[in-house]
Design a binder for these strands. Structure first.
Length: 422
RNA sequence: GUGGUUGUAGCUCAGUUGGUUAGAGCGCCUGGUUGUGGCCCAGGAGGUCGCCGGUUCAAGUCCGGUCUACCACCCCA
């Protein structure tokens, strides 16, 4: 076990790994921006009410997974378990309720008090996008297309998209009754979880993983028939637009999402490289109620788990392009050398180079070993002679050549070495 | 929250039927003569054997608990 472990379900991301995260962040920002979405940064905690009203009191997440605490002013606050509610709360400050479209994306940590497992952390990270203010099946489809485009740009071209419709609240009443009648008749053959879901959230039965339950579910009646013509037409337009955009998808009537705010379109993207948690992203159209507003904010959006993106990239052996600059390492021998090197290093950095300067005047061999360990491309050596002559020894680490140059020309000489080695 | 597996140096792991100062490889540090890396050689630092308790003359080794990590479920990204 690690000597100094962070709390359960959290992790430290060291410099060796962080470039992968940065690549994902950067790529997402570029893709979203190409669809004219702008970044919105909201707090990592909100008034607890935002999530209670926004996600629904009966949501599993709200019932048993939130990190809720009281602050010094006696306010009840909650670490955000997902991004949409906070984003919509912020967008209330725009004229989103008047139907003016708001296109935003976000990136950051989310918190859920769950038992950690593969692809599941207590602090996890999501990239999400929301197109709020308008209701349109074409926007739903384009949002999905943007997600698939993002995954492709992240080196994951083989993710599978499943889509479904939840209709509107009125549609669901009839559909739920139909399902309840059916499952009631066969509940004795089903698992304990399903028995509980029958009286609780009937929809959850649809994605039960037990083999026995799956057979019964497969024979369930087509609840979509209970939806209004408008709702069915809405869904057909979403699918038609996806076809037109060349987005591959699978219709999945069994796809149910866990958050109560979804209406009409819902979707989930899965990948084979994720083990038990196959979902790499998910989302849909929503109507979200927030404290102090009796009208819901409408929109369509999705969120993707960064840890899960990393897992899929691992499975595909995808390595993000690295764009790190070559390193210049400064070696000093003798008393005045360190200070002189610090000064030279500062100048080289102004010239745009990546520089590290040894501050201890230890042996040449030791310093050279360090330069090698750090994988330096060029080493600049300063001793008494160089100091007196205003010069410096420049060593090309790859080739091994070394020569004396004026201190003032160090930056451009280093650049020459770098361009040659490319 | 439920269940399974796990825990020895920075990392990957050995550690025989419980028995003296707990090992290896990699990594790290210092040397292998005067200011020079990667290879090689020599030496060195670094471990409350996850933690607590129990059994025993004796526990890294056995037992119980606990914590963490991993995995599955619930649920979700």
């Amino acid at each position: 076990m690690a000597k100094s472990a962070p709390p359960p379900g959290t992790s430290d991301i060291f410099p060796a790994e962080s470039p992968r995260w940065r690549f994902i962040e950067k790529t997402a920002s570029e893709v979203f921006s190409s669809y004219n979405f702008g970044e919105l940064r909201t707090p990592v905690f909100e008034y607890t009410e935002v999530f209670h009203r926004g996600l629904g009191d009966e949501t599993e997440v709200v019932k048993k997974e939130m990190y809720t605490f009281e602050d010094r002013g006696g306010r009840s606050l909650t670490l955000r378990p997902e991004g949409t509610a906070g984003v919509m709360r912020a967008l209330l400050n725009t004229d989103v309720l008047n139907g003016v479209e708001q296109r935003v994306f976000y990136y950051g940590p989310m918190f859920r008090g769950e038992r950690p497992a593969a692809g599941r952390r207590r602090q996890f990270h999501q990239i999400g996008a929301e197109c709020a203010g308008r209701v349109s099946p074409e926007l739903d489809a384009e949002n999905i297309a943007m997600l698939m485009r993002l995954l492709e740009q992240l080196g994951i071209p083989d993710a599978e998209l499943a889509v479904n419709t939840r209709g509107i609240a009125a549609d669901r009443v009839g559909a739920a009754n139909l399902l309840r009648d059916y499952f009631s008749s066969r509940i004795s053959e089903m698992c304990d979880d399903c028995k509980e879901r029958l009286s609780g959230n009937i929809w959850r039965i649809l994605d039960c993983k037990q083999d026995a339950c799956r057979k019964i579910i497969a024979e369930a009646p087509e609840y979509l028939e209970c939806f209004t013509a408008d709702s069915k037409a809405y869904f057909e337009r979403v699918l038609k637009t996806l076809d037109a955009l060349g987005v591959k998808y699978r219709r999945d009537p069994l796809l149910v999402r866990g958050l109560d705010y979804y209406v009409h379109t819902v979707f989930e993207v899965s990948h084979w490289g994720l083990g038990g948690q196959s979902a790499i992203a998910g989302g849909g159209r929503y109507e979200l109620f927030l404290p102090g507003e009796n009208r819901p904010v409408v929109g369509v959006g999705f969120a993707s788990g960064v840890e899960r993106i990393l897992m899929a990239q691992d499975a595909l052996k995808f390595v993000p392009p690295v764009d790190s600059q070559p390193l210049v390492y400064l070696i000093g021998l003798g008393d005045g050398a360190v200070t002189a090197n610090l000064l030279l290093a500062a100048e080289l950095r102004k010239a745009g180079l990546r520089v590290e300067c040894e501050v201890e005047s230890k042996s040449m061999k030791g310093q050279m070993r360090t330069a090698n360990r750090l994988n330096a491309s060029a080493v600049l050596i300063t001793g008494d002679d160089e100091l007196a002559g205003g010069s410096v020894q420049l060593r090309d680490m790859a080739g091994g050549e070394q020569r004396t140059i004026p201190r003032g020309e160090a930056a451009e000489e280093c650049r020459k070495i770098f361009s040659q080695s490319k």
